[in-house]
Design a protein around this nucleic acid. Structure first.
Lengths: 344, 344
DNA sequence: CTGAAAGCGCTTACAG
DNA sequence: CTGAAAGCGCTTACAG
């Protein structure tokens, strides 16, 4: 059973398709009577405009593309949720792709989205992405692009991020404030800007407090599927190499939880022996024992904000206005919990 | 800068658009020379077919719709990942919507996807869905529909599920096998078929082993955001009301982990005092201490299978074949870990 | 091997 | 207030 077309309605009512089209869109230059008749008939025949035809006519699809490095990930799935919910409000649908942290895939997918002629693109970069030509291609086509969380500073487009460096500084300062004398850092892999910035924030906080920076206190975790295990491994290594450390700022909650688990197993008390601050505010962090002090990273809000920004740029292009780019920095918050305060 | 069209290439080479189109599609009735020329020019001009026009011509969009109850959820995000990865292989894009467990939203979103004229729809039902007319609407439009995990038995379409009842039976039987004499069950909310089936599997296993079924041993957890906390609460209640229980089969890993945490806090030993089996095989289950015995629920594979099935039906409709419906039951496996075996 | 023509289903500027 | 006509950019059956 083929879907109803404008033409069918027009023939049934013995009027032109132009009039039917206008009536359906509520144009003022159609008589009330015709309008009512058309609307009734359309409803009766279960008419839905053929979006393919509409897209072709209007050159827009009311669809945007989204590329994330990984879907099965609490932070990114929260971002996705924020994007979709906001898009739905504005009548936009979202096509989602996942780059698996691969530059090659990311490039291919961006191309796919351009071929699909989505109205705009949201992206968080893969760790493997070092070359940014594919992003410039998007901009060259005059297609709105908004980057979030994992961005390339060099690309001239809107960005929605948090201030990783500042957040890390705050986290480290908190450890200093509660009296930690020797503070280690479990950082993420070397490439993405986020783990670099968090590392720099940690380092800066030490220096500002006249505490020596010691590179042997910095442990690297790849932060993939093995996060939890890496946390455990690094915790054990740390105890072997520096058993006088009394505070750790850890790149990611999951790694932090791994570390805490290991410490508990080895009889090291958190926070009495070692205080720990994580990063992301994963829901498990408020629920495990001891609850984890962490930096709240507002994923859902980031998704909403990123879509809003993209939407604005889509409108600007539609109206032939010059597109403005904005860098939006969302607030993070230190959430103090049991892993840094002794319950007395 | 407007994208290149067939016409522009045709004019530049002084040939017809028909020939250009055919050359680009590699049709055999175009001379090698023309073909080469066209391909080169197209590449040079960065030609991409206008998908809106192609969609209109071919009446397909190479896009499918997906509705899940919740995106920020380990099981569903795994399913999504499976769907997307498989779809990408076949050149399909995926539009994702989330019903938030609301029937009303689900209905609206299904309508949106039909309006968008996606080539097919994958759906896992909201807990709130009791009426199924909106699903029949999809089938009436001759649009392929595949349901997964949370399905409506009454709808005549393909389904990809696990055998919840059997899996629950296996879980409970395992508790019997290791010597549990009084086995409780923390079940999910009353509506979705899954928690009903898991409950029935639990009950059946008891009866088959000549153990009395006692409804006061069944605790209900809504399993939303509060899962972990509900696990703790139910654990505490259970200890008050039935302190001789020595085994629990729990609807979901997250609830089970909550319960274990509470037991540990209250000095009840797992598995020595109480053995616990969860459900889903969430990644944390293999990582916490004690590691959790659970039923592995193959989310990624379910996503892949659901897409494959949908793809087959899309092909059938394209070829005007009769569409066949299939119910595919994926295997689950009992994963035995420390929560049910004493490390001696 | 190449091209003219029709048509997918809509929207909109224009004429009446 | 209504309608004829053009056109969005493709694909394909058909003619030559």
């Amino acid at each position: 059973m083929k879907p109803t077309t404008l033409k069918q309605i027009a023939e049934l009512l013995d009027i032109s398709t132009s009039t039917v089209s206008k009536a359906l869109k509520g144009y003022s230059d159609v008589s009330e009577k015709t309008k009512r008749l058309v609307l009734e008939t359309a409803k009766l025949m279960n008419y839905r405009p053929n979006s393919f035809a509409v897209n072709l006519r209007t050159s827009e699809s009311k669809t945007i593309g989204l590329i994330v490095p990984e879907i099965v990930h609490h932070f990114f799935s929260s971002v996705i949720k924020g994007i979709i919910s906001q898009a739905e409000k504005k009548g936009y649908l979202v096509i989602i792709l996942q780059s698996n942290e691969s530059y090659k895939l990311e490039k291919k997918q961006l191309d796919l989205l351009l071929s699909q002629r989505v109205d705009g693109i949201l992206i968080s970069l893969a760790n493997g992405t070092g070359n940014f030509d594919h992003l410039n291609d998007v901009l060259l086509q005059n297609k709105p692009l908004v980057m979030f969380d994992k961005i390339a500073k060099i690309i001239k487009c809107s960005k929605v991020i948090i201030d990783d460096r500042k957040a890390a500084y705050t986290a480290t300062q908190h450890l200093v404030d509660i009296g930690c004398k020797k503070i280690a850092h479990f950082r993420g892999s070397l490439l993405p800007q986020n783990s670099i910035d968090r590392f720099l924030g940690y380092k800066q906080a030490l220096l500002d407090n006249n505490m020596p920076y010691d590179s042997s206190l910095v442990y690297i975790c790849e932060c993939g599927d093995r996060s939890f295990v890496e946390g455990k491994e690094s915790a054990r290594k740390l105890l072997n190499e520096h058993n006088d450390v009394d505070g750790i700022f850890i790149n990611t909650d999951l790694v932090a939880i791994g570390a805490m688990t290991e410490f508990q197993k080895l009889g090291v008390k958190v926070p009495e022996d070692i205080s720990i601050v994580g990063f992301s505010n994963w829901f498990m962090s408020s629920v495990i024992s001891p609850t984890l002090t962490t930096i709240d990273q507002p994923g859902y809000q980031m998704g909403k904000t990123a879509f809003k920004r993209l939407y604005k740029e889509i409108q600007q292009i539609k109206r032939n206005e010059t597109v403005t780019h904005k860098k939006i920095v969302l607030d993070t918050a230190l959430v103090v919990r049991e892993s840094t305060i002794e319950a007395k």
